[in-house]
Write a protein that binds this DNA or RNA. Structure first.
Length: 334
DNA sequence: AAAGCTTGCAACCGCGCATCG
DNA sequence: CCGATGCGCGGTTGCAAGCTT
């Protein structure tokens, strides 16, 4: 007896998602919250597999996702976490709350693997990306440190489990997500994912929409003309589509606002925080999305390894480890 | 300018785990 | 306990955009 398909394969649409589908999915999740993916296609009328809906949401539409432009700090974290955890992308992604496992996986496969391979094949000293391949740390040292880290992590985990206290939540509030300097000013934003924090995603969605407007309304006009034609999309577009710089806040918030005016459902009380692009709203929808973040961060106790990885204030030891020879990391990996 | 090649990423697939009745 | 079902994860693929020749 084989496993039945996750959904009826007949009539299931595959391939890239259209803006219309995105909007339908976001609207539905806005109303019902994420989860119960099985029912999403039937309730929304989307001709998509439930898995496809979940994937689209978690990898693209989910609030708080940062895309592209991995910082050096993030790169280093990924490299070291990969060395520690292996290809457990979901686990690695839990340490980078704004990144999806798919994004990290792709970035690893397309960028970091090559970078490390390059380093391994004899680029001495400082490379162009600023990674220092300090010869002072031998492979043996690296392995010893790695083993020590793993031991410490295990110990911390067992301690945390034996404590059996519900303080992991409060601990996680102290999670320092600001080790990326560019993100330090928006720490609160990282901690609480309102739907507004996905404004960038929605803005992108809308930009795509405007690039490929429905034929019925656009009728051969270019995207800019179409944009002005469609009054319901009062969006200030960014100069470069796909740019995910953090200063898009106000712009994307506008796009987000427009999105809701487009949907015109329960959105009239949504207000935009101009400073950080957050949408501050007391709507139930927002509370739904606040719950939808990286659950691991909220439930996993703050272990030593997490402190090591995330606490900027941990000082030199952390820096030493981060700056440890990537050649050695590469040697361990390949 | 055009063809071929490379790269990056969104999405799919299949498997394993968790939960529920 | 066991089977059915749903969800999540990691590996892989396909395609579009960018680059090179």
């Amino acid at each position: 007896m084989g496993r039945p398909p996750c959904c009826d394969k007949i009539g299931v649409k595959k391939g890239p998602w259209t803006p219309e589908e995105d909007i339908i999915l976001v609207s539905y999740i806005q109303e019902h919250g994420p989860g119960n993916w099985r029912s999403v296609p039937t309730n929304t009328g989307l001709l998509r597999c439930s898995k496809s809906c979940r994937l689209r949401w978690t990898n693209y539409l989910r609030p708080g996702i940062k895309r592209g432009n991995f910082t050096e700090q993030e790169e280093k974290m990924i490299i070291h976490l990969q060395a520690l955890l292996g290809n457990r992308w979901a686990a690695i992604a839990s340490y980078l709350p704004q990144r999806t496992d798919n994004d990290i996986k792709n970035y690893w496969n397309t960028h970091l693997k090559k970078k490390l391979k390059k380093l391994q094949t004899g680029v001495d000293g400082e490379n162009q990306d600023g990674f220092s391949s300090s010869q002072s740390v031998s492979k043996g040292q690296w392995e010893r440190r790695l083993q020590t880290d793993i031991r410490m992590a295990k110990q911390a985990l067992s301690e945390a489990l034996s404590l059996d206290k519900p303080n992991s939540l409060t601990d996680s509030k102290d999670f320092n997500l600001s080790n990326n300097p560019s993100q330090s000013q928006s720490q609160s934003q990282s901690q609480t994912y309102t739907y507004a924090s996905s404004a960038e995603n929605i803005s992108r969605l809308l930009q795509n929409w405007m690039k490929n407007p429905p034929k019925s309304s656009g009728g051969g006009t270019n995207s800019a003309e179409t944009m002005t034609d469609q009054n319901s999309f009062n969006v200030t577009t960014t100069t470069t589509a796909g740019s995910s710089s953090s200063d898009e806040g106000a712009t994307t918030a506008e796009g987000f606002d427009s999105f809701f005016s487009f949907n015109s459902c329960n959105s009239s009380d949504a207000s935009v925080d101009e400073q950080n692009g957050n949408l501050s709203s007391a709507t139930p929808e927002n509370s739904v999305f606040q719950d939808e973040s990286k659950p691991n961060l909220e439930t996993v106790p703050l272990t030593l390894i997490e402190k090591w990885l995330l606490d900027d204030a941990s000082g030199q030891a952390h820096e030493d480890l981060i700056n440890m020879s990537l050649e050695d990391s590469a040697a361990a990996l390949f």
